[in-house]
Design a protein around this nucleic acid. Sequence first.
DNA 1: GGCGTATTGTAGTGAGCGTTATAGATTCTG
DNA 2: CAGAATCTATAACGCTCACTACAATACGCC
Lengths: 199, 199
Amino acid sequence: MAGGRPRGFDVDEALDRAVEVFWRQGYEGTGISDLTRAMGINPPSLYGTFGNKEELFRKVLDRYTDGPARYIREAFEQPTARAVVERLLHGAVDGTTRPDCPPGCLTVQGGLASAPAAEGARDEMATRRRMGETFLRARLEQARIEGELPDDVDPEGLARYFATVHQGIAVQAAGGASREQLHQTVDLAMRVWPSRADA
Amino acid sequence: MAGGRPRGFDVDEALDRAVEVFWRQGYEGTGISDLTRAMGINPPSLYGTFGNKEELFRKVLDRYTDGPARYIREAFEQPTARAVVERLLHGAVDGTTRPDCPPGCLTVQGGLASAPAAEGARDEMATRRRMGETFLRARLEQARIEGELPDDVDPEGLARYFATVHQGIAVQAAGGASREQLHQTVDLAMRVWPSRADA
DNA sequence: GGCGTATTGTAGTGAGCGTTATAGATTCTG
DNA sequence: CAGAATCTATAACGCTCACTACAATACGCC
């Protein structure tokens, strides 16, 4: 086993550049030349290191989950279910309106419709969106068991509502809505949270 | 002025086919060959009749507004602002989950991120999304003046909230959510509607 | 130093993109 | 029927797409 010529670029740094390009232009709107230019490498380096466009995109999604979309995992560390949801939605607002990043959410931008050739990437994005909703639903079920939520609340329906708001925020941000405006929207959305008086 | 050879296809019928293709595959995911195949015509007929891809897409958006998205205009015919919003959101659920059409909303699918070349189409979709929100805001302002809404309500913020839910529904539908599930989501979202007791 | 190995830049692959030149077909006018 | 006008199909345009052969380069190991 020998050494071989060392890689001339930092993999994570290159991934960060790729995240931004896919984020701004979507999967289908991004060409390999856009990526190589932003990453500062040539096509053979890209293919040698990341496989192909779709595999690179999956690695970009992972990097996105651990980076700009870290707020999702962090939200679930909150002590109460209500705090989890508040943190999730307000975090989404901050994450989709960062001045140094494209507006919107990587897993939504261009992940709704696509040519058959991009089906793999589209399905991957849909799966990741569903995962967040599933986690939230489990957290709400736990909250009902623990008494934080009334018994007559439907955790699945409530989780879907908040997921809908979450994704709506991404569309709003992509359309140019401001951070302040969307934080206000989240405050409104939180009014749906069931109070014990409701039941 | 002479007659010339008559057109061998129905323009509106061809537009309907184009609507469905763009709806399913997005603007960038749709090739001219996809369109000509679905419309049953050849490229010169497409270009002679509709201009080019972007002009065709604008005509497709118009046709979509008068067809599958008719519910938006119709919602504003309701007598009260609350009924307008209810009709708007429940109409959106039905429109984005039609069994005979692609799931989701044409003005959202692929309208969030794109290559610079598709900027025109993207801007057009963003503008149309904003229009609905602006109309709704005006209707809510009117409702406050007429006393249907309390004075301390912010029509702009409330309109943005419902627009967020509206667009979130489109993402949910594109991801496979069912009609029943989303109608339930709308019922939850409507709980934000301000009651006079709130103020 | 020489060998094996991994990464590099250059250049190019076939396929598909949006678009159009060209010529034949079909209509109305005179 | 002659001629102008319009739409048609075939075929191709230049360009970009995702992807890769190839040969040169830079390392660890013996």
